[in-house]
Design a protein around this nucleic acid. Structure first.
Lengths: 133, 133
DNA sequence: TTCGTTGCAAATGTTTTGCACCTGA
DNA sequence: TCAGGTGCAAAACATTTGCAACGAA
């Protein structure tokens, strides 16, 4: 792995992700950063997102189908993903330590991280479908 | 949602997934089914995988990057994904019920399912990297 | 000066779709 | 008969990559 060099674009991407509560896609990052860097390219965004994710400075969220989402919040938390609107909500629950203990015994290798997603229909979608049905 | 009609291809796809211990991609399903259905098309495979996943008869696994994987095993279990070789192993751990209880209180909606992935380097990769390093 | 980084565009890989034909109910 | 399913090819997306120019150390 080559030595990193400072880049304004990469810092802007990292900073952008840390200040967002939602979980933007590469496309969203690109669109928003164009205000600050009118010439930034999608390739650069993807390159840096991949780099930051590999460094563990951001988290990649593969929600089913469509583009990947990215999360700048590194504190332990989980996601609730609405299968209707595909919004990703943060939730925080306890007992993850116990889970990891169990998993470490069962896994065919050394566990480095874990990701816990819950799926369902969010309150907002549940409410609006009640109207239309 | 329109009424389903029987199709040999769809049954073959479902059956194929249920008899595999690994977690094939659409491409793999396609390649293997060509032996039985020389004219089956990738489009048909994708259409049926999506359909079966929506019906909850198979599970879609979004492992980071690359193509999605599919799992015909519906019994509750978790996955350990090797970040080196990207193989997906099944593991089974307890305490998921407790977890769900906690999540149901924290989630902004009704939870229908949950998915728990662990990441790390599998024993096989760990062993082979020891040789080359 | 050196080598990582960027913008751009082309290429790649995955998944979806339009359409005419086929098939199960 | 008729709505759903299929094969095929093209299209749509998401992401990666080659390359020449740029910029940080």
């Amino acid at each position: 792995m080559p030595a990193l060099k400072y880049s304004r674009q990469r810092e802007a991407i990292r900073h952008f992700l840390m200040t967002r509560r939602d979980h933007p896609t590469a496309e969203t990052v690109y669109t928003c950063l164009r205000e600050e860097f009118p010439n930034i390219s999608l390739g650069t965004v993807y390159r840096n997102l991949t780099l930051l994710a590999d460094l563990g400075e951001i988290q990649r969220i593969s929600s089913d189908g469509g583009a990947e989402h990215f999360d700048g919040d590194l504190t332990p938390h989980q996601h609730f993903i609405c299968s209707r609107c595909h919004r990703i909500y943060d939730i925080r629950i306890g007992g993850i330590g116990l889970l990891l203990d169990g998993a470490k015994k069962a896994a065919p290798g050394r566990i480095e991280s874990c990701r816990l997603n819950f799926y369902g229909v969010c309150e907002q979608c549940a409410r609006s479908s009640k109207d239309s049905q």
